[in-house]
Amino acid sequence: MTRPDPGTAAPAATRARARLQGTGSIIVLRVLVILVALVLWQVMSGPVVPEYAVSKPTDVYDALTDMLGSATGWTDIKVTTIEVLAGFGLGVAAGTVMGLVLGSFPLLGRVLEPLVAAVNGIPKIALAPLFLLFFGIGSWSKITIAMTGVAFVVFYNVYLGLRLRERELVEVVQVMGGRRHHVLGYVTLPTLAAPFFAALKTGGPLAILGVIGGEFIASSEGVGHELFTAAQNLDAAAEFAGLIVLVALTLALNGVLTALDAYALKRLGLAARRRPRPRS
C-alpha cells in the first residue's frame, strides 16, 4: 500500500485550513455588518428618521414574534409558500417545454419567437387584473402570475442554449453511431445545464414577486395581504416583519436550487469546471 507523500499532504492541509479560516472570517464580518446596521437603525430611528416610517429593530422583533406565534401568521406564510412553489414549478415546466420545442424546430422558433418576445414585453403585474377576472382572488390567480414570470426566463435560457449548441459536437456523435439519446446525454444536457439552472435561480425571486404583487392587488390571506394591510395601517414594524419572512423564503428557495444545481452538475460530470484552479 502506497503511503501519501508528507511533502504533498502538508501543503494540502495548510490550504484547507486557510480556506476554513477565510470562510470563518467572512462569516464573522457579515455578522458584524448586520449588527452595526441594526445598532445604527435602533439609534437613528426617531432622532434622525421618523420612527413611524422605519420603526425600530426591537419593535420589528416583537412584530415578527407575534406573527410567528399566531395561527393566522403561519396560515399566511403557508399560503404564500404554496403559491410560490406551485407557480415556480409550473413556470419551469412550461418554459422548458416551450424552449425545447421552439429550439428543436428552427422554423417554428423563427415564426413564434417575435410573438413570445411581444408577450414577454408586457409587465407581468399588468396581467394580474386579467388573471383575477379568470381565476378570482384565490390562489390560482397568484400562481398564474408567478408562473408567467418564471416561464419566460426559463424559455429564453433553454431556447438560446439549444441554438448555441455546437453543431460540430452533434455531428461527431452522429458520425460515431450515436442516436438521439446519445446526443441528448453527451451534448444537449451538458450545454443546457448552466443556463437552465441560472434561469431557475433568476426565476425564484420572480415567482415570489408575482405572488406578492397578486396578493397586493386582491387577496384575503398571504404574506402580501398582510404587508398591504400593514402599509394601510402605517404599521412599519409589521411591514418589516413580513419582509423578513420573504427574505427567509427567498434564501431557502435559493439554497435548495443551489444544492440541486451542484448535484446535477456532479451527476453530469460538469462540477470540475466550476472549481477554481489552484494558483501556482
Rank of each mutant, 00 (worst) to 15 (best):
P6T: 15
A9M: 13
A10I: 09
A16F: 03
A16V: 11
R19V: 05
W41N: 07
G46T: 07
V48A: 10
Y52M: 08
Y52L: 05
A53F: 13
T58H: 08
A63E: 03
A63F: 02
M67P: 00
G73Y: 01
L85W: 06
L85C: 09
G87P: 03
G89T: 09
G91Y: 01
F105N: 06
L112D: 03
V116W: 06
V119N: 09
G121Y: 02
P123G: 10
I125R: 02
L132C: 06
L133I: 11
F134Q: 08
F135E: 04
I137E: 07
G138H: 04
G138Y: 07
G138D: 14
K142M: 07
I145G: 00
G149Y: 02
A151G: 07
V153I: 13
R163W: 14
L164M: 14
V173M: 11
G178W: 05
H181K: 09
H182C: 01
Y186V: 02
V187S: 11
L189T: 06
T191V: 15
F196S: 02
K201H: 11
L206D: 01
V211S: 02
G213P: 01
G214K: 01
H225P: 01
L227F: 10
A231C: 04
D235Y: 08
A238W: 00
E239P: 00
T250C: 14
A252M: 14
N254T: 14
N254K: 13
T258K: 13
R267A: 07
R267L: 07
L268D: 10
G269A: 13
R275K: 10
P276S: 12
